[in-house]
Computed example of a mutant assay.
Amino acid sequence: MTTTDSTQSVVDTDTFTVTRSIHIDAPAAKVWAAVTEPEHISRWFGHTVLDGSGAGARGTMSFEGHGSIPLKVESVDPQRSVSYRWGNDDALGAPPAELDEQASTVFTFTLEPVGGGTRLTVVETGFEVTSDPLGNLESHRTGWDSELDKLVALLESA
Rank of each mutant, 00 (worst) to 15 (best):
M1S: 14
M1H: 12
T3P: 07
D5G: 14
S6F: 11
S6H: 12
T7N: 15
S9K: 14
S9Q: 12
V10P: 08
V10D: 11
D12S: 11
T15Q: 15
F16P: 04
F16S: 15
V18L: 09
R20V: 06
I24V: 05
I24H: 07
I24K: 02
D25R: 08
D25A: 14
D25E: 11
P27I: 01
A29K: 04
A29D: 07
K30D: 08
K30R: 12
V31T: 05
W32P: 02
A33C: 08
T36N: 10
E37R: 11
P38G: 02
P38A: 05
E39H: 13
E39M: 06
E39I: 10
I41F: 05
I41R: 04
S42T: 13
R43V: 07
R43Q: 13
W44I: 03
G46R: 01
G46T: 01
H47R: 06
H47V: 06
T48L: 01
L50E: 00
D51M: 03
G52I: 07
S53P: 03
A55L: 06
A55F: 08
G56M: 08
G56R: 12
G56H: 07
A57H: 04
A57G: 01
R58C: 03
R58A: 02
T60K: 01
S62N: 00
S62W: 01
S62M: 00
F63N: 02
E64R: 08
G65P: 03
H66N: 10
L71T: 02
V73P: 01
E74R: 08
S75F: 06
P78K: 15
Q79V: 13
R80M: 13
S81R: 13
S81W: 11
S81D: 11
S83N: 04
Y84F: 09
Y84H: 02
R85E: 00
W86I: 00
W86F: 01
W86E: 00
G87S: 02
G87Y: 00
N88V: 09
D89E: 12
L92D: 05
L92V: 10
A94G: 04
A97T: 15
A97L: 07
L99C: 01
L99T: 01
E101P: 02
A103D: 00
L111P: 03
L111V: 09
P113E: 04
V114E: 12
V114I: 11
G116F: 04
G117Q: 09
T118L: 09
V122W: 05
V122P: 06
E124H: 10
E124D: 11
G126W: 04
E128D: 15
V129E: 11
D132G: 02
L134I: 12
L134H: 12
L134E: 15
L134G: 06
G135N: 09
G135E: 06
L137D: 03
S139F: 10
H140Q: 14
G143P: 08
W144T: 09
D145L: 10
S146L: 08
E147S: 14
E147W: 12
L148Q: 09
D149P: 05
D149R: 15
D149T: 15
D149N: 15
K150H: 10
K150W: 07
K150M: 08
L151V: 10
L151P: 13
A153P: 11
A153F: 13
A153G: 13
A153L: 11
L154P: 03
L154W: 11
S157F: 09
S157W: 11
A158G: 13
